[in-house]
């Protein structure tokens, strides 16, 4: 689980070009959107594609994203429970 969380943080920093942020700067419970990391709707699309591409998870209901992408912890929990690829 910790490896997955590390992987998610690295992906978010690299893919979303968060130049001044390190893995250590993102807490597992920090909010990814809004006042937390400050991600926006375009980033949400990037994360949805990442779930599909890296873990074989297709989100059909966009409303689901709000809860799944709340923090690194919620993302990791959802991926662990629903992943179809290793």
């Amino acid at each position: 689980m910790d490896a997955l969380k590390q992987e998610l943080k690295e992906f978010i920093i690299e893919q979303l070009n968060l130049e001044d942020i390190n893995v250590e700067d993102i807490g597992n419970d920090d909010a990814l959107f809004g006042d937390g990391l400050g991600l926006d709707s375009i980033d949400a699309l990037e994360l949805i594609v990442m779930l599909d591409k890296n873990y074989g998870i297709k989100l059909t209901d966009p409303k689901q994203g709000r809860a799944i992408f709340e923090s690194i912890n919620t993302m990791a929990d959802y991926i662990t429970a629903h992943r179809t690829t290793n």
């Binding site: 893919q15 375009i42 699309l45 990037e46 594609v49 599909d52 591409k53």
Partner: peptide, 10 residues
């Protein structure tokens, strides 16, 4: 690279 799949908006 992704065979026309997984295209992101940025």
């Amino acid at each position: 690279d992704n065979d026309e799949q997984y295209l992101t908006p940025t």
